[in-house]
């Protein structure tokens, strides 16, 4: 498993796409930090961009790589290696490569320009989002048979999670505004890794405003460490669960 991961990382490191992604992130972050003297404002801008680009690149790149490596995967399956180890090795290799790009592209500039609690939260949240969407990419890839369908599904997941989910939630809130919705809102948040990451950052940036909310459940959620613990553990689940489902599908999949 680790050997496969190692060779995939060695392969990806030479790919231009991931280098371009790293440079893109690094450029965005550096430009934002250099053009704005207010570090917190810079972090806010980066958060907005990170919550769109990182999931998109993570899921599309991982899906594309998975399908491009389909014959290689076949070759590995014909070798005396467990299927589980093959898929996990691929996940490990791809996710750590994309994560590496995120670390170099975002974490490094943030550490240089804005090393603070908020900055670190952004790093952790972005890293977990990367893992979650790579994991989702594996689910989408094993679920579908060919590349175009796989990428289609991956794009839909991204579009759904990063763009329209919140609109749907807002619509939901408008429709049922007469009902107590706190619990429902927390559940809805947990269903989207982008929202979970955003909440983590909110808890650092906007805690003053969050504390103004009257409901007891939110207060408990926002106050103390509950919110952070909840978000981090849910994001962990998002990073692991889809890949476990993918394993299940892969173990029975015909290649």
């Amino acid at each position: 498993m680790f050997k496969i991961a190692k060779y995939i990382i060695l392969d990806i490191i030479r790919s231009k796409v991931l280098i371009a992604y790293t440079l893109l992130l690094a450029t965005i972050c550096t430009v934002i930090f250099l053009s704005d003297s207010d570090v917190i404002k810079g972090l806010v801008s980066i958060t907005t961009i990170v919550m769109i680009i990182v999931p998109l690149v993570s899921i599309i790149y991982a899906t594309t790589y998975y399908f491009n490596a389909a014959e290689f995967t076949e070759l590995l399956v014909s070798q005396p290696i467990k299927r589980r180890d093959i898929l996990l090795g691929e996940y490990l290799g791809i996710s750590s490569s994309i994560l590496g790009a995120f670390v170099l592209g975002v974490c490094l500039p943030v550490a240089l320009f804005a090393l603070s609690a908020t900055g670190i939260t952004l790093m952790v949240a972005g890293g977990l989002v990367t893992l979650s969407f790579t994991s989702l990419a594996f689910w989408a890839s094993t679920k579908t048979r060919d590349k175009s369908k796989g990428i289609g599904l991956a794009l839909m997941i991204w579009f759904y999670a990063a763009i329209i989910y919140d609109a749907l939630v807002l619509l939901f809130l408008f429709t049922f505004s007469d009902y107590p919705l706190e619990k429902a809102m927390i559940v809805l948040t947990a269903l989207n890794p982008v929202d979970l990451a955003r909440i983590m950052i909110l808890l650092k940036l906007d805690i003053s405003a969050l504390m103004g909310y009257t409901g007891a459940l939110y207060r408990q959620f926002f106050g103390s460490g509950t919110g952070i613990a909840f978000s981090v553990s849910m994001l962990f689940i998002w990073s692991v669960l889809p890949v476990l489902l993918a394993l299940k599908i892969f173990s029975k999949k015909d290649l």
Binding site: K3, I4, Y7, I8, L10, D11, I12, I13, R14, S15, N68, A69, A70, E71, F72, E74, L75, L76, S78, Q79, P80, I81
Partner: peptide, 30 residues
């Protein structure tokens, strides 16, 4: 599968890997 050698119809390998590395890798993982 240790005892089987398989030659697929179309062999495709990681794009950026070099031939030498491919052989090394197969030796390594087998």
């Amino acid at each position: 599968k240790k005892y089987i050698g398989y030659m697929p119809q179309i062999g495709r390998y990681p794009d950026n890997m070099k031939i030498g590395q491919l052989f090394d890798m197969m030796l390594d993982i087998r």
